[in-house]
């Protein structure tokens, strides 16, 4: 049996609030297979982002365990990179694009030239060669999110976790970024977990879709997306399986099915 990239076992999350305990997650269990692209969907406020914070080690569950590649999670694990929705805040505005990308490499004790090389490779991967000396805020929203993706892949992660990564960009940019993420995943064989509220996006990108539902939330269903890769915005979105899946998942998120 192969070890899953991420194993979520009976994870429960409660927050104390002035009005009593807020039960967010209730015995959530799910395994993310190595190399898979998994989307987590669910109605807004269901606890998607909470689950993602647990996966990244930014918070600890009140019950249950999370294992990343067989090791129990206690803090942010090695080999896991994060892309957050709010690129305007997650990129440091006082650092240039190149310095933003090299910031996480500080841990790696790489030589200066190796760091430079890694920055160049990462920028080339996201199609932003030549922006090294710009500041993030001088770039468009879509380009800034490309920079955060470049920063994430600069550490050569085996797992990429993204929280609504394309929520604040326009539709055209969104399609481009979706294809970029698929390309990155292909080039580096990265296991990817993405939280999204966009069901079309989830179907387009994923191998599997995890539907969270209820209060406290549990895994309502796991939907396999059996549309072959490579996918394309035109062909895949016109595929009859695409339409069926989005309708099914939509129904689950809405609690209709």
């Amino acid at each position: 049996m192969t070890i899953p990239a991420i194993s979520i076992r009976d994870v429960t999350m409660d927050y104390p609030t002035p009005d009593g305990v807020n039960h967010v997650l209730d015995h959530v269990s799910y395994d993310v297979a190595e190399g898979h692209f998994v989307s987590i969907v669910g109605p807004s406020g269901v606890g998607k982002t909470t689950l993602l914070r647990l996966l990244t080690g930014l918070a600890s569950p009140t019950g249950g365990e999370i294992h990343v590649r067989g090791e129990r999670l206690t803090s942010s694990p090695e080999g896991l990179a994060v892309v957050l929705q709010d690129y305007t805040r997650s990129l440091m505005p006082w650092l240039t694009v190149a310095k933003n990308i090299s910031l996480p490499l500080r841990r790696a004790k790489m030589s200066r030239s190796a760091v430079q090389e890694r920055v160049q490779e990462s920028l080339a991967e996201v199609g932003l060669t030549g922006t090294e000396r710009s500041y993030p805020w001088q770039l468009s929203g879509g380009m800034q999110q490309r920079v955060s993706i470049a920063r994430a892949i600069a550490v050569r992660p085996s797992i990429l976790v993204m929280d609504e990564p394309f929520a604040s960009v326009d539709a055209q940019t969104r399609f481009d970024l979706e294809d970029l993420v698929l390309k990155v995943r292909d080039d580096f064989g990265i296991t990817t977990v993405m939280v999204t509220h966009d069901i079309d996006e989830a179907v387009y990108l994923s191998d599997e879709i995890v539907v969270l539902h209820g209060k406290p939330a549990a895994v309502r269903d796991v939907v396999k997306v059996e549309i072959p890769f490579p996918r394309s915005q035109m062909a895949t979105r016109n595929d009859h399986r695409f339409a069926e899946l989005r309708t099914r998942v939509y129904g689950m998120v809405r609690g209709l099915e």
């Binding site: 914070r53 080690g57 930014l58 994060v82 957050l84 997650s90 440091m92 006082w94 910031l103 996480p104």
Partner: peptide, 29 residues
Amino acid sequence: TNLVVLDTAQSFRLSPSAILWRVRLPGAM
């Protein structure tokens, strides 16, 4: 310090002192 900035720095496993002097202080300038 903005919480998103802190989350980002933490997820990169920057050391507490790097977070302090390279992330929190520059942002506070």
